[in-house]
Amino acid sequence: MTEFEKLVSEQMKTMDKLLDLQSELDRCKQIEAELRHLERDARLLGIQNEIAVKRKHLADIQDMFQKQTEQVIRSYRSSEKPSSFV
């Protein structure tokens, strides 16, 4: 497996994590809305904390994904053969 393929594979794993976490965050936000409606402050605070943690985790994964994208681009560019003009 080439370096480029390894980087792309890692990036795909990161994308899966990103999508899973986004789904969890959406689920938590839905629960938050339901709890607000039901005015259950104690549980509301708990879910708000969970949302804050997931948002932080999501931002971390997004940063990692951005760095991996840059690595993939650099790897691809370094593996390209320069075109010759005739």
Rank of each mutant, 00 (worst) to 15 (best):
I73E: 03
E70H: 02
D16K: 15
L18M: 12
A33S: 12
Q48G: 06
L38E: 05
T2G: 13
Q30L: 09
K54P: 14
Q71W: 01
R27G: 04
E24I: 04
T69M: 05
L45V: 13
D41Q: 04
S83V: 10
T14C: 15
F65C: 04
I73C: 00
A52I: 04
D60E: 10
F65T: 05
A59V: 05
Q71M: 05
M15T: 11
Q11C: 11
R55G: 11
S9Y: 12
T69V: 00
A33V: 05
L38N: 06
N49S: 09
E70K: 07
M1S: 07
E39W: 03
I51E: 02
R40I: 09
A59R: 07
S78C: 01
E32N: 13
L58S: 09
S9V: 08
L19M: 09
L19T: 05
K6Y: 06
G46A: 02
V72P: 01
F65A: 09
A42P: 00
I73R: 02
Q22A: 15
I31E: 11
F4G: 05
K13N: 11
S23L: 14
F65P: 07
S84K: 11
L25P: 09
I61W: 09
V53C: 07
R36E: 11
M12D: 15
E34A: 11
L45G: 04
H37S: 15
K81P: 01
A33E: 15
D16Y: 13
I51A: 03
E32W: 12
L18G: 11
T69L: 00
K29T: 12
E32P: 09
M64D: 15
G46L: 04
S75R: 08
I73S: 01
L35G: 10
Y76R: 01
L45T: 12
A52S: 13
